[in-house]
Simulated assay, not measured.
Amino acid sequence: MDETLVFPIAIIIFVLIIIAKGVRIVPQSDLYVVERLGKFKKILHGGFHVIIPIVDQVRSKLTSREQLVDIAKQSVITKDNVNISIDGIVFCKVDDAKEATYNVVNFKNAIANLAMTTLRAEIGGMDLDDTLSNRESLNAKLQTELGSAAANWGIKVTRVEISDISVPAEIERAMNMQMEAEREKRAIETKARADKEAVIRSAEAFKQEEVLKAEAIERMADAKRYEQEQIAAGQKQAMVLINESMAQNEKAAEFLLAKDRVAAFKALAESESNDKMILPYDVTQMIGSTSVLGDAFFKGVSNGNTNNNAS
């Protein structure tokens, strides 16, 4: 190669390298922190960018997507002195690339360690039962504590999840026994409440039955009294009418007596007795008259005999 061409080719290669160093194509989800002569200059977002080669340099490349930070499983002692193992996950994203670059060396490592210390502090102030039952409350407390600290690093903590809480085997057996005892207790209480409710309902039913019986007796008494009052009123009215009829007609009493005789003869005729003899009303009158005349005749004869003997 001709020595006269070496220099121009070198210059062309140098220019191409400079151009390549000055062109930056940033992916959509990435953030590039650019420094100029060692001092922060700007942040490059997704797209095509041109920087000054050698003068400007990309200090760090971050992503704006949500990231996961694992909380390593660790042993924690609760307020009631139970040693448990717990781990979790922190969801976060870069909110300010400049602060995430210059305010902390490694924000993921910082968040993981902060989450571990915060978790120990929170679990240390809670009983085992509260730790197991109030997981959502624990997640909210961790998110608040981590969020306030991570905000200084340009990181936004979006969510914290406690993924696993493990208790020792003997504690687990004791918890299972306690759970069975609680179930039996609730079953006994439920049965007792059911029996009590049944007794109350039976008593209420008996009470209602007795009340209804008393009301029925009272209504029957009222009905009977009303019936007797109406009968008495009817008899009273009948007596008034009979008295008025007898005052107006002398034969009214005879009519009533004849009506009663007819009813008596009818009842006697319908009787199944064999020791009876039924005579018309006229015959009975005649028999009565004959008996009267016979008595008078016999009295007269006896008087005559007495006078003859005396003379």
Results as ranks from 00 to 15, higher is better:
Thr78Gly: 01
Val23Pro: 02
Thr78Glu: 00
Gln248Phe: 06
Thr284Asn: 09
Val33Glu: 07
Asp80Leu: 06
Ser60Glu: 15
Ser291Trp: 10
Thr306Pro: 01
Leu293Gly: 04
Val76Met: 02
Asn113Glu: 12
Ile54Cys: 04
Asp30Asn: 14
Ser291Ala: 15
Ile231Glu: 05
Glu218Arg: 14
Gly294Lys: 15
Asn152Glu: 06
Val55Trp: 15
Val76Trp: 02
Tyr32Ile: 03
Arg135Trp: 08
Arg183Phe: 12
Lys42Thr: 15
Asn309Cys: 05
Asn139Gly: 05
Asp260Thr: 13
Thr290His: 09
Ala223Arg: 14
Val211Glu: 12
Gln57Ala: 10
Val82Glu: 08
Ala267Met: 07
Glu197Tyr: 03
Ala296Thr: 11
Glu210Gln: 15
Gly125Arg: 12
Arg225Leu: 14
Asp87Lys: 14
Ala110Cys: 10
Ile51Lys: 10
Val240His: 10
Val23Asp: 03
Glu145Asp: 10
Leu268Asp: 01
Glu136Met: 03
Phe48Gly: 03
Glu182Arg: 12
Leu268Cys: 00
Asp96Gly: 04
Val292Gln: 14
Ala310Tyr: 14
Ile11Met: 15
Leu146Cys: 02
Asn176Met: 08
Asn106Val: 01
Glu210Leu: 14
Glu218Cys: 08
Tyr32Ala: 04
Ser163Thr: 15
Ile89Leu: 14
Arg135His: 01
Met277Thr: 08
Glu270Ile: 03
Met1Phe: 11
Leu257Gly: 01
Arg183Cys: 03
Lys42Leu: 14
Glu218His: 09
His49Glu: 09
Asp2Asn: 15
Lys196Glu: 13
Met239Ser: 10
Ala150Met: 00
Ser148Trp: 09
Ala20Gly: 15
Arg183Ala: 14
Leu293Ala: 12
Lys266Leu: 05
Glu250Arg: 12
Lys98Ala: 05
Ala253Arg: 13
Glu122Pro: 01
Phe107Trp: 13
Val33Leu: 09
Thr131Cys: 13
Met179Arg: 14
